[in-house]
């Protein structure tokens, strides 16, 4: 194993620690476990950030050439989004839901079983690498926003129908979930917009009518409607969450289509 493999093994180990402590928090509701989980996650995030930057510098190219590299970068962006959200409002249950997913991505990435080429090396210019990372970060925020939105949907339904389940004691108040959804979707919107803009400006084919570009644009339109309806027409509650979910499913479909449904990952 090379030194970089050891580092990524350590990253997966830290994320595993985060997942384990998040799980223990979920079981016990002991905030001590949540704090431990956050420390493990931060350690993994820091190390992964340094490792990814180190690889970029030493290889002279962003480590996005293989599926493993892409998954690693995505786990990093998801962990970063979770950490930023935690600074805004700590919601331990989110850590319990997403930490195992971050660990899984980083473990698969470390496993190196997906060394299949993902992007043509010549196409990974610094701008395109930043484009990929920004869209990953945007997508990560959308994922968290979706998670919180679904939690709101379920929790609100239970309160409305007078059928409160015991696990809902793990969720914060509806007001917090609503505010957090706006926060995640807002940040996701900004990063997604920046990623889309950078990708298109560097792709050199403006205006592009490529399906992924159009789809990404539609994602932005859906979320813009979400904000418009909230701020102008004061739409709140479950109806506004429908837009959050719709936007996310479209973004997810675009992500999947870039990887699986197209002959080439080049899309402009």
């Amino acid at each position: 194993m090379t030194w970089i493999t050891w580092i990524f093994a350590a990253v997966a180990y830290f994320y595993a620690g985060g997942s384990w402590n998040s799980f223990r928090y979920y079981q016990s509701l002991d905030e001590g476990f949540d704090q431990k989980a956050a420390r493990w996650l931060h350690a993994g995030l820091l190390l992964q950030g340094v490792a990814l930057a180190g690889l970029w510098v030493t290889q002279g190219q962003a480590p996005l050439g293989t599926a493993s590299g892409v998954l690693g970068a995505f786990s990093f962006s998801l962990a970063l989004a979770l950490t930023i959200g935690r600074i805004k409002t700590p919601v331990p249950i989110l850590g319990s839901l997403f930490s195992p997913f971050i660990f899984l991505l980083s473990a698969i990435s470390f496993g190196g079983t997906l060394q299949t080429p993902c992007l043509e090396p010549y196409s990974v210019t610094p701008y395109i690498a930043i484009h990929i990372f920004l869209t990953f970060l945007g997508f990560s925020f959308f994922t968290l926003g979706f998670g919180v939105g679904v939690a709101f949907w379920i929790h609100e339904g239970q309160i409305k129908q007078h059928r409160i389940k015991s696990w809902s004691y793990r969720l914060p108040a509806l007001e917090v979930l609503d505010r957090l959804t706006v926060f995640y979707i807002g940040l996701g919107f900004l990063f997604w917009l920046a990623g889309l803009g950078l990708g298109e400006s560097q792709g050199g084919n403006l205006p592009s009518i490529h399906p992924t570009v159009l789809g990404s644009f539609f994602v932005l339109i859906i979320y813009a409607c979400f904000f418009l309806l909230r701020w102008v027409f004061r739409l709140r509650g479950r109806k506004s969450m429908v837009l959050v979910m719709a936007g996310y499913f479209l973004a997810l479909f675009i992500f999947m289509s870039v990887r699986y449904f197209m002959m080439t990952q080049t899309h402009f």
Partner: peptide
């Protein structure tokens, strides 16, 4: 308790 579930 219900009020706390709705308002933070």
């Amino acid at each position: 308790d219900l009020a706390k579930k709705i308002f933070s």
